[in-house]
């Protein structure tokens, strides 16, 4: 058990004992070596199952809208939150999904989530059956092989340029010596793609999304995708075809869903990690966050009292992209 885990259990146990929260959402050990999974703790004696490691890949804010009945009853929910989870919770609060006082944020100083898919590919075509952590490396074992991997080489793309590893808003913070990434510049993640010719970019985009099987795991794993009725499910009017043999429908699904996240995405990378066909959705949403920063100097989920960037208007907002007389 590491220091962070110990502290999490301590805080969680106390909160439940004092009946300050109805439920704590955290992580437990999964059934696969490279996975920790969301868990729901309601009794103080259950806190022993809470864990923390670099495989806690889900954004737990996604579960809050499922607990409408708790929120409506005025209950409080505790969330074990990484930097990105906390920012998603703030977005929720800004958008009136939950009230600030109904969420107890147990902040974790996150050193970045490891990219399960990239680690699995190290073993490709084989399978990783065992993994252990040691300082800044992980040891993976499989059928007839053993590899030591440096954690920093296998961070999720989104975590490399994360600018808020430590939750910006929290009720209790688990102490940890995490340094914010120097020169965390999201622009770097899209530079290569952006430097290509438009047709080449369109080709890459199309190739990526043409693998889409419309399982909507990206949408459902996303804490900002909480619409009661998603535009893809609307039947009156039906905005989008439901087939997979139309490239355009697949492109439109990805464009519209991601654009709905403009100024709302915290770049947690949950969508890319959830995708069973390994579509690089981060490549799309990264651009939106870069533009929110560039045009409006805005970052999502920082200040509870602020409004999401596209919900507010100011006379000196950027006019980029609008028709200009020459």
């Amino acid at each position: 058990m590491n220091k962070i885990e110990k502290k999490i259990r301590e805080i969680a146990g106390k909160l439940l004992k004092d009946k300050k929260v109805k439920l704590i959402i955290g992580f437990e050990k999964g059934t696969l070596p490279l996975k920790a999974r969301p868990t729901f703790v309601r009794k103080p004696e259950e806190v022993e199952k809470l864990i923390w490691n670099p495989f806690c890949e889900n954004n737990l804010a996604v579960y809050i809208p499922f607990y409408r009945r708790y929120l409506d009853n005025g209950e409080t929910i505790g969330v074990i939150a990484k930097g990105c989870d906390a920012r998603s919770l703030i977005l929720h609060i800004q958008e009136n999904i939950e009230k600030r006082e109904q969420i107890f944020i147990i902040g974790i100083p996150c050193e970045g989530i490891l990219d399960r898919k990239r680690i699995e590919k190290e073993a490709f075509p084989g399978e990783i059956t065992e993994v252990s952590e040691k300082d800044d490396t992980i040891l993976v074992k499989g059928n007839g092989f053993e590899k030591t991997l440096k954690k920093k080489d296998f961070l999720c793309e989104d975590c490399i340029v994360c600018s808020h590893r430590k939750p910006v808003v929290y009720d209790e913070l688990v102490e940890g010596d995490v340094k914010e990434t120097e020169a965390a510049d999201r622009q770097n993640q899209i530079k290569e793609f952006e430097s290509k010719e438009p047709d080449e970019r369109w080709k890459i985009f199309t190739e990526e999304v043409s693998r889409c099987i419309r399982c909507y795991a990206c949408r459902n794993a996303c804490p900002a995708c909480y619409c009661k009725e998603c535009f893809v499910d609307c039947s009156k009017p039906q905005w989008l075809g439901t087939t997979v043999d139309s490239e355009t429908d697949l492109q439109l699904f990805q464009i519209i869903r991601t654009f709905h996240l403009a100024g709302r995405c915290v770049n947690c990378g949950s969508c890319s990690r959830a995708c069973p066909m390994d579509i690089n959705i981060s490549l799309l949403v990264n651009k939106l966050s870069v533009d929110a920063k560039r045009l409006f100097d805005y970052e999502t989920g920082i200040d509870v009292n602020e409004k999401p960037v596209l919900n507010k208007y100011s006379e000196d907002d950027s006019n980029e992209g609008f028709f200009e007389e020459h």
């Binding site: 999974r37 969301p38 868990t39 729901f40 996604v62 579960y63 099987i213 419309r214 399982c215 909507y216 795991a217 949408r219 459902n220 794993a221 075809g241 439901t242 087939t243 959830a274 069973p276």
Partner: peptide, 25 residues
Amino acid sequence: SERCLGCGVCTYLCPTCHCFDIQDE
């Protein structure tokens, strides 16, 4: 089901799931 996100990964990757929907275009 508490942790279920409600996506279709399990059913769409499953070799035996066979439910379908009919649409007119």
